[in-house]
């Protein structure tokens, strides 16, 4: 009897694992399908480009404050921490390089994307989820207007446009924050700060790669947010769960993609 129940619970466990796994694969497939459809309908949505501009306003401009303030603090902390370590080796002038490279190569794209997922991604998911729950998407369908062309694609391209812009601003403001801590507060020589930076930051290897990263994160983050909203069960609970999933999935995707991209870029 006991052995039988162990067997039952074991098979149930395996079945749960299998169910979860196949569910994830199915969702991945559905997400890829939505991505493909978004690309197909993009042409249709570009004919009404002001829709995309409107979404750039809501995802990009509205995220400016949080991104810029975070960037400023991240830059300042980087400079403080960097100085603490570098001065032990008598090379506190290298603080400019340290701040600039960490921001441009890693922190700029990654932290911006994480903030974007929290600020704009959740808003996108909740909005689309509610539009679905209140039958707005179905109404659009019935009016012979494709919701993917009218609602999904403009938001997607807005995210892809906004992310590199935000990341570039993040890096710039972060370096400014680092400068303010390093030069006026700590007293590192301003000339050394900038010249060391300029000597060691490469346009293609560092800046262009950083921009490429942020574009990839923009695609991933926005697509995840859109899919979670589009796929959400049309209930209050469904939308709130979808919003949570957006943050979790986006964050993991950003960090995972960051590793993959970095290893590609270093090996190249």
């Amino acid at each position: 009897m006991i052995r039988f129940s162990v067997l039952v619970s074991l098979t149930r466990m395996l079945r749960n694992i299998g169910h979860g796994f196949s569910n994830r694969i199915l969702r991945l497939g559905a997400g890829a399908r939505l991505f493909g459809l978004t690309l197909i309908y993009s042409g249709e949505s570009f004919r009404r480009f002001h829709l995309t501009i409107r979404e750039v306003y809501f995802t990009g401009v509205m995220s400016l404050i949080i991104v810029l303030v975070s960037a400023f603090f991240v830059g300042m902390v980087l400079a403080l921490q960097g100085y603490y370590t570098l001065q032990k080796y008598g090379s506190s002038e290298a603080i400019g390089v340290l701040v600039a490279l960490s921001l441009i190569r890693e922190l700029g794209p990654v932290v911006t994307a994480l903030l974007f997922a929290g600020r704009a991604g959740t808003a996108i998911t909740a909005e689309i989820g509610l539009m679905k729950a209140t039958e707005q998407l179905a109404a659009m369908e019935m009016m012979a207007v494709s919701p993917i062309a009218r609602v999904i694609a403009p938001r997607f391209w807005a995210g892809v446009i906004a992310m590199p812009v935000l990341a570039a601003l993040f890096s710039m403001v972060g370096i400014l924050g680092g400068y303010i801590v390093a030069v006026p507060l700590i007293g590192v020589d301003a000339g050394a700060f900038w010249s060391q930076m300029q000597a060691n930051v490469d346009w293609r290897l560092d800046i262009v790669n950083g921009v490429i990263k942020s574009i990839v994160f923009g695609v991933a983050c926005t697509m995840i947010a859109l899919f979670e909203g589009y796929d959400a069960p049309p209930t209050a609970e469904g939308v709130s769960r979808a919003t949570t999933r957006t943050v979790v999935t986006s964050s993991l995707a950003i960090l995972g993609l960051d590793f993959v991209l970095t290893s590609f870029m270093i090996s190249m």
């Binding site: 409107r54 906004a162 570039a168 890096s171 930051v201 921009v211």
Partner: peptide
């Protein structure tokens, strides 16, 4: 719509300036 256009214009211009700044001042 016009004020949205304005804000988005400012936003994108700021981003390009930041990129240019990175290229010139930081990346030399």
């Amino acid at each position: 719509r016009t004020s949205i256009d304005l804000w988005v214009g400012i936003f994108v211009a700021l981003g390009l300036t930041a990129l240019l700044g990175l290229a010139m001042k930081v990346g030399n």
